[in-house]
């Protein structure tokens, strides 16, 4: 989301001194446009911060033993203080520790869902778009069908049948994540397969698989990556939703949605046990949405306003 639209500095000294390749120039322009949008930069900073917390999590939390389920009942429900900035929960665990440790769980689960959804969707969409005919018809009706089912109920049903656990939850959500990518990739592939470089590859005797995965797909990666970044926030939200309902990750694994769900029972007196995990979800989703919006504005000129 670019807040301002100043003229592009295409007559900078460099551009005149040494002509750049077209792709490098496009990147440079994209980078410039991205850096001009305050909101995108805020998004980038938030996401980088979250990634840093996710990677360094086990070493920076104040009470590492609380992450693995150790409890301290003498310290139950302490309000926020210097020793416990976010207070302590019903088991005497430090809420700040749990929220920081939950970053890794949420980011990992969100990323896994988006990657799996994008992979399956890309393959299905690419095959449908390239093959056409009845293959296309069958695959696309299948994705229509999936789009009619409410996503959360679908994920809940699969997660409940598979049983609790982080991996099962990722499978359950990812199972319904692919149709958007399938539609996107199908459309892109259908337009790209008519282009000259595909005809050239075919004339050289390349197999359909090679044409599709070596020649066409690399050319449609940009919209896929943009959609993935836009989807990250929503994936994290879905993970937290399942945790909140009580299907998916079980304690002691610190998951934001599950933390929030437990602390609901201790409102309003011990509000800090709910507010901080909730804020963490909001900040993570907000950060990824800002970043995704910024990337979309850079790569998709049509969406830019």
């Amino acid at each position: 989301m670019s807040l301002t639209a100043p003229p592009l500095p295409d007559k900078s000294a460099q551009a005149i001194a040494a002509p750049m390749s077209a792709s490098r120039q496009a990147w440079r322009r994209g980078l410039y446009r991205f850096s001009q949008s305050t909101l995108s930069i805020i998004g980038l900073i938030l996401v980088l911060g979250l990634l840093l917390i996710a990677v360094t999590g086990p070493w920076i939390v104040p009470f590492p033993e609380h992450v693995t389920g150790s409890i301290a009942t003498a310290n139950r429900f302490r309000p926020p203080s210097a020793a416990h900035p976010f207070g302590t929960n019903e088991l005497g665990q430090d809420v700040l520790t749990l929220v920081l440790a939950g970053t890794r769980v949420s980011l990992f689960a969100g990323l896994a869902v988006v990657l799996a959804g994008a992979f399956v969707g890309t393959v299905i969409g690419a095959v449908a778009g390239y093959a056409g005919g009845w293959v296309d018809e069958v695959l696309m009706r299948l994705s229509d069908l999936k789009l009619t089912v409410p996503g959360l109920i679908f994920a809940m049903a699969i997660a409940a049948a598979l049983g609790p656990g982080l991996v099962n939850m990722v499978i359950a959500i990812a199972a319904g994540w692919w149709p958007g990518y399938a539609r996107l990739v199908r459309g892109e592939v259908m337009s790209k397969k008519e282009e000259m470089f595909v005809t050239a590859a075919r004339a050289l005797g390349a197999s359909p698989g090679r044409i599709l995965f070596r020649h066409i797909l690399p050319n449609v990666m940009t919209p896929i990556i943009v959609k993935m970044s836009l989807d990250m926030g929503f994936a994290i939200l879905t993970v937290a939703s399942l945790g909140f309902i009580g299907i998916g990750v079980k304690p002691p694994t610190p998951e934001w949605g599950a933390l929030l769900s437990v602390s609901r029972n201790y409102m309003p007196d011990f509000w800090w046990t709910a507010i901080f995990p909730g804020l963490a979800i909001f900040i993570a989703v907000f950060g990824f949405n800002l970043l995704g919006d910024g990337l979309r504005d850079v790569f998709d000129p049509k969406a830019r306003r």
Partner: peptide
């Protein structure tokens, strides 16, 4: 608008209740 889209509905519900 971006904030509203990023707000988990269950968290907003909880805040409203609170």
């Amino acid at each position: 608008a971006l904030g509203a889209i990023s707000m988990p509905r269950f968290f907003l519900g909880l805040l409203l209740q609170l």
